[in-house]
Design a protein around this nucleic acid. Structure first.
Lengths: 116, 116
DNA sequence: TTAGTTTATCGTGAATATACGATGATTGAT
DNA sequence: ATCAATCATCGTATATTCACGATAAACTAA
């Protein structure tokens, strides 16, 4: 963003997809998503136990995932239980799937052969 | 990275997936990937024409996509023709697909109900 | 009320990302 | 050899990311 003199009007889906991708752009957050995808849920403490990073750092990563809408937190005092965001996770799957399914299945595609 | 006192050994696939996601973490780069996915190929100039950003900025975005291995460039003087990276694009599709396919298909899944 | 547990947030410093204009490099055409 | 065209890279400024420790917030239990 920064010196945004040229403000572009992006497609809403492109913005969403980019935001999801950005949130997924760190190995720890991929790890967290995988864990949540496998076990359905877990507490922050479970993650701080299994990931060798400071508790504050993991909380920060969780916040990014939550802000992006990929996960959701349920307060169960004094813990917080995290799950995949039930509304947005399928949306993310669809957006990524659509991006990759446009082409790419064909092996012998005529790449790099446009006119001019 | 920065003050990496705690160096974590991530799964290779997790690192790859995170790197792909990071590269996709900007609307312009999503746009570029979509274009390349649709038209098979295009020149840098085609992108600078259709995207209201400085030529240097677009070149920078292209470099990120190339460094991440999502696209590849073919020099056709004085132009450069870009395509999706034929080797890695299917890899990226597979990694994202795997991440999203672990669960998530079931609607009435018993979320947030682990023990303790 | 006090103490303990769990998690989020604050403050910080270093690294990276994002945008721009200016300049450099490469090749084809004159 | 020179010029124009195309694209990459450099230099810059600002914003964001990523990590940490310290502290705050919320709730339970005693």
């Amino acid at each position: 963003m920064s010196r945004t003199l040229a403000k572009i009007a992006y497609n809403a889906d492109e913005k969403k997809l980019a935001a999801f991708a950005k949130a997924m752009g760190h190995p720890v957050r991929i790890q967290i998503l995988k864990i949540l995808n496998t076990q359905a849920c877990c507490y922050t403490g479970d993650l701080t136990d299994s990931i060798p990073l400071a508790q504050s750092t993991i909380s920060q990563h969780l916040k990014m995932l939550k802000d992006a809408g990929l996960i959701q937190g349920e307060i169960m005092p004094p813990k917080v239980k995290y799950c995949l965001n039930q509304e947005n996770w399928p949306v993310a799957r669809r957006l990524f799937s659509e991006l990759f399914q446009l082409s790419g299945s064909q092996e012998g595609q005529t790449l790099c052969s446009s006119d001019e």
